[in-house]
Design a protein around this nucleic acid. Structure first.
Lengths: 342, 342
DNA sequence: CTGAAAGCGCTTACAG
DNA sequence: CTGAAAGCGCTTACAG
């Protein structure tokens, strides 16, 4: 099932149009003025042969791939769809191709999946690239932009991230001030995940500023994952730990929290208030509607592309873009109509 | 901000190892046996120089891109994340790269985004590629696999899709038989969307086999989209059309239906039963929990990759893979516990 | 404005 | 098992 008739090349076009391949290249790329009449002949030949320049040849000759790579750990959930949508749309507008790679694929990696050998620059989400490789790429001045992750010591790589700490602090303060909660569980994300670390800091600061002592018993791991959060909550319940609210780390984990609480007949928010983070698609539709923090995920993707393109154009990129988050009060915290008819 | 020191090439490696570039290529690709001692020297040189072969050069010389392309119309919602996850994981296992392109990006396309010039084969979701281009690619024997879309007349291109009609028929029959509904609205998907067409057929067949006359007034467009579905429902309500159930086309649209009904104080399922299609992440968590049809989306992605790889290997692909769907009864149809504590 | 030619960095018959 | 050489299909100085 191989390609049957050899595909046309630039040489075929040149012959048909009666010009040199250099001229064909020029009209294709509009890189140098070409007499209109000649250009027209070339275009006709291109159409007739249905010629499309081989990307590989073009990349090799021009020493540019016109492609950017996206590295991330996991394709999952609404969060990822939002991020990718932002990246893709912004990238197309700039005329770049997108190569994606999920480091979660546990198949042994022979070659470096994405790097200077196949892209002009890289977008790196959270800790999807080892520090080693990051350092190497940075050292050779390879264009990089990090998302939701600050660069290791001494590396100056642009970062796009969100106001995790402020959002979390507002959220937890709300539980304390408006709803009088004092025994608030925090479900951490994956180890080393910066979003989680900042959110935890916001959580702690909120406690501290309200004179509530930090209780390590109330901080457990939910991994930003429904199942893990469910398991963590079950353990907390079994251990008989006392609490009146849960900050689930992110919205996905909140689903697991809901399940665990409902399963043991706790009423949300009366018995236990629950809040998340991200405000993904389903958050407003679950019952009770989830109080959370809106993270501008799609915009993070867009902005990351913008900064990367600056680097690709030899311009300065902004070293840190911190996008604002907003509290979204719904019902799971204890506010609002208890499902009157939203 | 250009790459500072020239990147090492195969020639640098060859010199350092004291062999020809052909030998370096051979140990890198394990394409021909090389004396172990020599191979070792090459590997050492590769490590020392941190050499990674330029993808473009390799593609050009080998006349293979080792890349497959994914074309689809819209990156949106949980549906897409599931599909992409299936595709990505299966592709990595086979050692291919993934280039993605969303035809929705309304930026004028200069060059063909994905095709024989930059990929070895294409995965095409729904109608994301014009019939013209499909015919052209098929004619030159370019490996193609379609998802959720049968090929135009006379083209033999493998298809992976799901049992839309059976699923829809079961769903609607359930509404009729178990819940006595007879005025059932159907919300169509985008024009020309095959999933929608088959679901409509299932809907009609269910009506017919239960002796319920088809009423064109009850069929309106929801576009598989929350907002469109919301608008369509509002219009139906305003027009005073009488109905006792809604088959929303897909789960995303069901959200819009919920909103419109709740806004006008209709109780789901008592006043109006609602059912969806797909069983995406949020479906079990909305209130009332959505009765729907489970579509094995991730598996569709996996299977599409499997078939495409067969073609790439010169093997025969299965011309049609029809994946089964299952009815998922929850509460929005009128069954089950009215939120006892799921 | 246009062409001849070098070069991009690999792979792969072809000899040996 | 290994090397010299051709070739993959473009782009881009360099002349003219």
């Amino acid at each position: 099932m191989a390609i049957t008739n050899r595909l046309p090349t630039i040489t075929d076009v040149a012959q048909l149009a009666g010009v040199s391949i250099a001229t064909v290249s020029r009209v294709l790329n509009a890189s140098t003025p070409v007499v209109e009449e000649t250009a027209q002949r070339v275009r006709t030949a291109v159409d007739e042969l249905q010629f499309v320049p081989r990307t590989a040849a073009r990349m090799l000759a021009s020493r540019k791939t016109n492609t950017i790579g996206l590295l991330f750990s996991e394709i999952r959930g609404a969060f990822f769809a939002h991020l990718l949508h932002g990246i893709e749309s912004q990238l197309r507008a700039a005329g770049y191709e997108l190569l994606i790679y999920s480091t979660q694929s546990d198949h042994p990696i022979k070659r470096k999946p994405l790097g200077e050998h196949n892209t002009d620059g890289l977008l790196v989400f959270t800790a999807s690239l080892e520090k080693e490789e990051l350092r190497r790429l940075n050292k050779i001045n390879f264009p990089l932009v990090l998302m939701h992750q600050t660069p290791p010591e001494g590396m100056n790589i642009p970062v796009i991230t969100i106001e995790n700490k402020d959002g979390a602090e507002l959220l937890v303060s709300h539980l304390i001030e408006k709803h009088g909660r004092r025994r608030i569980v925090f479900l951490q994300g994956p180890a080393g995940h910066e979003d989680s670390q900042w959110r935890e800091r916001g959580y702690r600061d909120a406690l501290e500023s309200h004179g509530i002592p930090f209780d390590p018993e109330l901080v457990v791991s939910g991994e930003f994952d429904e199942e893990q959060a469910f398991a963590a909550m079950q353990k907390l319940l079994l251990d008989g730990i006392d609490f009146d609210a849960v900050f689930s780390g992110d919205d996905d984990a909140a689903i697991g929290v809901y399940r665990a609480l409902k399963m043991t007949n706790r009423i949300i928010p009366d018995d236990v208030a629950v809040v998340g983070f991200d405000d993904v698609q389903f958050s407003r539709y679950i019952s009770p509607a989830l109080t959370t923090v809106r993270a501008p995920i799609e915009e993070v993707g867009r902005e990351a592309v913008r900064q990367l393109i600056r680097l690709l154009n030899g311009e300065q990129a902004q070293s840190l873009v911190l996008m604002r988050t907003d509290l979204v009060i719904r019902e799971s915290c204890g506010c609002g109509p208890k499902e009157v008819n939203p």
